[in-house]
Nucleic acid binder design. Structure first.
Length: 410
RNA sequence: GCGCCGGUCGUAUAGUGGCAAUUACACGAGACUGUAAAUUUCGCGGCUUCGGCCUACGUUGGUUCGAGUCCAACCCGGCGCA
């Protein structure tokens, strides 16, 4: 058994559903918010704290672990879970996102989610910036990366990414893809999609080959294919169809990632196009998303898994989630505020510390600031998705969504 | 008492004739979506119809078209000699 996905309840009239996803390291109740631990650590938070904050599953990164400490080292340490003392379900991203973040987006201030109201802003910036500095360059067969750590050059192919992910040993691994920049033109999006599809097939082939080589004592892994296609309906649908149907030795992808960068406004339409095509009986993961409003949108559009760096990144940088919206805990108004971050929040941070203390920790540049803040943010977002799940089971999703979003100011 | 050195935005500094004045920290407000992020941006004398205007480098006066910068006196601090 590699993976078992069961749908318990559906949202009537919508694509959403609540279910359970069972993998070798445990059960994930879906929809679920996956916590990101890029280098085999959820930044500033220990695995026990991650668990206490309610997280069910952690996602690490192939590229980063390959560079440091090296996938062989991870394997030697007993695999990702053992290495980071995480007993629950685990995933690795393929390195595809780094094709974007270290490539087209490198030093350009382009982010995964673009907040634009004017669609013309999304139209081509692509004249020829091929000589722009970047650490990732797309080649014939794969991508060459210049290590940001020591400048060494590494060529990552789909096969290589899958081999690394097998050494790392997470429960769920992802096909190697190209996450395109939101301001690439349609022609480029089409070419990139061909490449991603080609890489998807090769990823699946390599995965099956490696699974076939495993012995009984080895833990089996599942692989998710990634749907791309930018903001174009035709490309998105074509990709959803291809990724769900591609087959090697009679085997298909175990689940799906929905990747790429979006204008906030088109995210929902893109997700719907895709999820209307993807097979219902397999899990779908919206990669790199998101914010509370994105979670409601995603769930009702048929997403089962989300992951995002926001809880930890924002936490480390002094922004904390509350039911009324995000607050900047370093601001003067919290200096003498002895209330917890959230009055009725059961997380470790809120049950033990005050806003004023966390404000003080940030001003004093104390490491604990990032830890306590990350714990709260993880709890907030993970728990929000758990509540969304419960609302599907209780058949009051719409009411919950409305009451939450009414209070929550973006 | 004599001599030398020094007094610049909260702090520490840069600045030897064109300066609302450098840099760092502190302070203030933002940003962050599959993590090159404990990162990063902006602001930090006042007013403004955004063209400027006013007030500012210990104090007072002077030289100069123009002074934080040169001169004089004074005040304050440090060091040395009596």
């Amino acid at each position: 058994m590699t993976m078992d996905f069961r749908i318990e309840k559906r949202l009537t009239g919508k694509l959403g559903r609540a279910g359970t996803l069972t993998v070798p390291h445990g059960v994930i109740e879906t929809p679920a918010y996956v916590v990101v631990g890029t280098k085999g650590t959820v930044k500033s938070v220990d695995s026990a704290q991650v668990k206490e904050a309610g997280a069910q599953v952690v996602l690490s990164n192939t590229y980063h672990l390959y560079l440091q400490p090296g996938d062989e080292a991870v394997k030697k340490m007993g695999g990702l879970n053992k290495m980071m003392n995480w007993s629950g379900p685990s995933m690795t991203d393929s390195g595809g996102f780094q094709v974007f973040s270290l490539g087209a987006a490198y030093k350009k201030g382009i982010s995964k989610v673009l907040q634009v109201t004017d669609p013309s802003l999304l139209i081509p910036e692509r004249f020829d910036d091929s000589d722009a500095p970047r650490l990732a360059k797309i080649g014939q067969d794969g991508v060459s990366f210049t290590s940001h750590i020591d400048g060494s050059v590494h060529y990552i192919t789909p096969e290589k990414s899958i081999q690394i992910q097998h050494n790392i040993g997470a429960d769920i691994i992802f096909a190697f893809d190209e996450c395109t920049s939101p301001n690439e033109d349609l022609k480029y999006q089409g070419e990139a999609l061909e490449r991603t599809h080609n890489w998807a097939r090769r990823s699946l082939e390599e995965h099956i080959k490696l699974e076939n080589q495993k012995s009984f004592s080895d833990t089996s892994q599942s692989i998710f294919g990634i749907v791309q296609g930018g903001r174009d309906e035709e490309l998105r649908k074509k990709s959803a169809k291809f990724i769900s149907e591609v087959e090697v030795e009679g085997k298909k992808f175990d689940g799906f990632g929905i990747g790429g960068s979006f204008a906030k406004e088109d995210m929902q339409t893109a997700v719907k196009w895709v999820n209307e095509i993807l097979p219902e009986d397999k899990p779908r993961h919206l990669l790199g998303i998101g914010e509370p409003e994105d979670l409601f949108m995603g769930v009702e559009s048929g997403v089962d898994l989300f992951d995002c760096v926001l809880p930890t990144r924002l936490g480390r940088n002094g922004t904390l989630y509350t039911k009324e919206g995000k607050i900047h805990i370093t601001n003067t108004e919290y200096r003498l505020d002895t209330k917890p971050v959230e009055e009725d929040c059961p997380c470790y941070t809120c049950t033990h510390y005050s806003r004023s203390y966390i404000c003080h920790l940030f001003h004093g540049k104390e490491m604990l600031a990032g830890t306590l803040s990350s714990i709260h943010n993880i709890h907030f977002l993970v728990n929000l998705v758990k509540k969304i799940r419960q609302s599907i089971l209780d058949e009051n999703f719409a009411e919950f969504k409305e009451s939450f979003l009414n209070k929550y100011k973006q």
